[in-house]
């Protein structure tokens, strides 16, 4: 019998109690978050549990929310249970001043380059990663380009300001 989002949620709450929070289902995909110290425990539990079987890491990346103080960077894992064909999304948030998150490379070989890419663009420091260096950008680069404080265009331009479109506020 296939696995429902509710069953997954119950399993997780049973195991981690209050630590796993913010369960939502945007477009049908169960999404939740956990403290960053627990990320490996949650991933390991999802991997090992005989009913959950989330053993395929589809994707790993980060998102930058500059206005969310203390939890500016979100590391997002997309996991897939190939047997029951269920996907979930798991997030951990970290302070941008101390962006240390445990690496998932021991569990998933594929996390190696994904984490390198995330480090490259967001500066998330994956603790325990065997080879954490830049992958797509040049080694000499001294900033993390996908963070929101790096504008793509000249900020003195006014013709593309959102003000023009009735939304107000400045451009990211």
């Amino acid at each position: 019998m296939s696995l429902t989002n509710e069953q997954i949620q119950n399993k997780l709450v049973e195991k981690f109690g209050e630590a796993v929070t913010n369960f939502t289902e945007p477009y049908g995909m169960l999404t939740f978050e956990a403290p960053k110290e627990l990320n490996l425990k949650v991933l390991q539990f999802l991997f090992d549990d005989e009913t959950l079987k989330f053993r395929f890491l589809t994707d790993l990346q980060a998102v930058h929310y500059p206005n969310d103080k203390g939890r500016e960077l979100a590391v997002v894992y997309h996991l897939h249970n190939l047997v029951d064909n269920v996907r979930i999304r798991f997030k951990v948030f970290t302070d941008i001043n101390k962006p240390d998150v445990y690496t998932a490379t021991q569990l998933y070989a594929t996390a190696n380059w994904m984490e390198r890419e995330t480090y490259d663009f967001f500066g998330v420091n994956f603790v325990g990663h065997p080879n954490l260096k830049r992958i797509l950008n040049v080694d000499e680069m001294d900033y993390f380009p996908l963070r929101k404080e790096f504008p793509l265009e000249d900020q003195t331009r006014i013709d593309k300001d959102d003000e023009m479109f009735g939304r107000g506020g400045s451009v990211n």
């Binding site: 663009f121 992958i135 797509l136 040049v138 380009p145 793509l152």
Partner: peptide
């Protein structure tokens, strides 16, 4: 890798 990186995600 990265020789033809074009920053699509930023763009």
């Amino acid at each position: 890798v990265g020789y033809i990186h074009r920053a699509f995600e930023k763009l």
